[in-house]
Design a protein around this nucleic acid. Structure first.
Lengths: 310, 310
DNA sequence: CCGCATAATACTCATTTCGAGTATATATGT
DNA sequence: ACATATATACTCGAAATGAGTATTATGCGG
């Protein structure tokens, strides 16, 4: 094993939405922490990193990855590899798919298990005021000097202060990590955690990769029609809205949502209607693929609401 | 050299702006193609990829990298390494700095040398209509089948059709690459180019990394105050506007630009004025660092003009 | 020292977008 | 029939946006 070479690992946050639940495919061995599917990159066989990813995902799971996107390359010492063997650099990917039968050893898990503070659909998660903000206040106060304290105060404000920016998923996770509010911090530092531990931990730095994936997806949503990778071929407008809301972790204004989607030419009606459980039947729509040719940034601009219920 | 391991290279697009010219630091050996500063990553010495980057940039050049950001990890076979030796995976970075004395062997070069079709400040570059579009039309026509032709037509339209999206720098470069309009395509495929060759080529895949850097910077500009990393401590509003225009490759509406910048609280006046060459003296402004605490997405929203001159 | 070119800065205006709400239509269940 | 639930259409005001005109402060050439 040469000193100058490293081994490359590919991790994938494979995302699907079922109804109102955004889910991620995890490998869950009993006892061990949840992990993202992970595979080695074989430089001898594969021409590109992405083809390597598609290959082992195809082998290990049965999913057809539609949209895939590289997220970030992590090379931090000690956050991945074992003491023996070569240094591991891991390249994280985001992949979107429609849920199917999962492979053995894997299962779908709602991503808000890992990030409960990111779901604002019902209301601001109570844990923010009850647990997170007090703990972060302490984190600011415990800063070694005034300058660090000021920086920390700024970060706390940006992440959890006035005006929720749903895209800052990674920033918030990293802040909670540094403040010792997630289990991984204590695991990585080898000390015992005596305080709160928020959300379900994951193996290695996988929760960080997942945070990156969610952040990227929430951003992309607004200017590229990526949601449709997660939808069935036809869907009602409410189903589409629920999917977007699930991903963004926010409630949207129904009437404005359909106005946006329609005006942008993102969807077209099929003339068919669903069989409703209750209420007036909704028309089934399909994604207008041609919009890719027409508009420069055809995303689902999410008309965020400012006040009460929908 | 193990079969399963690769060697990691770090490339950096180090960007500065002088007046109206956005520049990138290149290593220019006589005869050879321009290259981005490139250094190997030493897994034995460095804890993270970014610390590895900062180390050799600090050694080779004299710059203090302010803002740095990882761009993308390229692992394509044949686009980087030599036949012998290990497979090279290259991690690209974007770094912003203020121009200083460059190191030996390096020089600043305007980035539009490499992407002449990306500079729309004066007008739509003539080469688009005279050279690019006809060649791409041929590229569509030469498609092996109707489906590929349709896909290509769509891409051509998105990249160079109605409605210029200044952020699609990478998409455009990749399209030109595949259509054989940039020298690198012919170099990589080992054939002789008989057609036009647009812009100045670079070593390996460095022009692709630079395209990624420009795209990322143009996007970030709008929602994070990154321009200020490139400005002197104080500046006039016109200087700021010119810098943004240089990066975006677009002209902006002067009065609206200052309205945006002022309303968003991005800058504050110093009460001092410059010594004008002509015209009324302009007030010198400085970046309001506190804005980071106040606003969720404090970027320079660039009120793009739709008609004639400023 | 006057008028002009040039640039900075202030202010106006119409249009579009956006958040929010009301009104109406069409189902189901009792 | 009517209560309830959902789908869809339409309205309204506030804010943001694109574009322009007006005014102010300089240097410079006569």
């Amino acid at each position: 094993m040469s000193k100058e070479t490293v081994s490359i690992g590919l991790s994938a946050a494979i995302v699907a939405v079922e109804g109102e639940r955004p889910s991620v495919l995890v490998v869950a061995h009993d006892g061990a922490a949840d992990a993202l599917p992970f595979g080695p990159f074989d430089p001898a066989q594969q021409r590109t990193l992405e083809s390597g990813l598609r290959k082992w995902v195809g082998e290990q799971t049965r999913f057809d990855l539609g949209y895939t996107e590289q997220l970030y390359t992590f090379g931090d010492k000690g956050r991945h590899e074992s003491a023996a063997g070569p240094r591991v650099v891991s390249v994280g990917y985001l992949a979107l798919t429609r849920k199917g039968k999962e492979a053995p050893e894997t299962e779908w898990r709602g991503w808000y298990h890992y990030f409960p503070w990111e779901d604002w659909r019902d209301s601001k998660p109570a844990m923010i005021d009850s647990t997170i903000l007090p703990a972060l206040k302490k984190f600011v106060k415990d800063a070694p000097n005034a300058e660090t304290a000021e920086l920390r105060r700024e970060r706390v404000n940006v992440c959890f202060g006035e005006g929720w920016d749903e895209e800052r998923v990674l920033e918030r996770y990293e802040l909670l990590y540094e403040a010792g509010l997630v289990e991984e911090f204590w695991r990585d530092s080898g000390k015992a955690n005596k305080g709160p531990s928020l959300g379900t931990p994951m193996l290695y730095d996988h929760r960080r990769i997942l945070a990156t994936a969610i952040a990227r997806l929430r951003g992309k949503l607004k200017y590229r029609p990526v949601v449709f990778e997660l939808m069935a071929p036809t869907f009602t407008l409410l189903e589409l809205q629920r999917a977007v809301e699930a991903l963004a972790g926010l409630r949207l204004h129904k009437q404005n949502f359909r106005r946006l989607v329609a005006e942008q030419g993102l969807v077209e009606g099929t003339g068919k209607f669903n069989a409703p459980v209750r209420g007036r039947p909704a028309e089934l729509f399909r994604f207008r693929r041609v919009v890719l040719r027409e508009r420069p940034a055809p995303g689902v601009r999410l008309g965020v609401r400012r006040s009460k219920a929908s």
